[in-house]
Amino acid sequence: METIKLIYPVEGGDLIEAGEASSKMKLTLKKLGLPQDIIRKASICMYEGEINMVIHADGGQAEVEVDMNQITIRMIDSGPGIPDVEKAMQEGFSTAGPTARELGFGAGMGLPNMKRYSDDLTIDTTVGKGTTVTVIIKIPQ
């Protein structure tokens, strides 16, 4: 399989509509014929990343690369950055506001879930400049 690159803009502002990019990626991964388990993991990671991006950074861009070995998802935003990454990785810690909570999010599970469902997670963040969260999901051979 050649490396496939996919780019999905993530609109900011409207949390009710968030998730469209993840839905589109899931459909594409299905068309590529990847195993259902792998698609599920990638979809959950991307969805959590997308929700985070809308809540905290007013949107951004998702870049997805698929090759025969792995799926790499990069969630790139120009938001406020994460001041304390260690704290952000703790289950239950959240700075999300009431709107996110009303919709069933803001439980402090976003980044921990991305870690749970991926084989590797890295966070590159600068306060005041933005954050790139990269997850890798390996495809069993």
């Binding site: 949390l15 009710i16 509509e17 968030a18 998730g19 993840s22 839905s23 899931k26 599920r40 979809s43 959950i44 969805y47 929700i51 919709l103 069933g104 999010f105």
Partner: peptide, 9 residues
């Protein structure tokens, strides 16, 4: 709608 999107993912 996020309930359905969560279900989908």
């Amino acid at each position: 709608p996020q309930v359905i999107r969560t279900a989908d993912m």
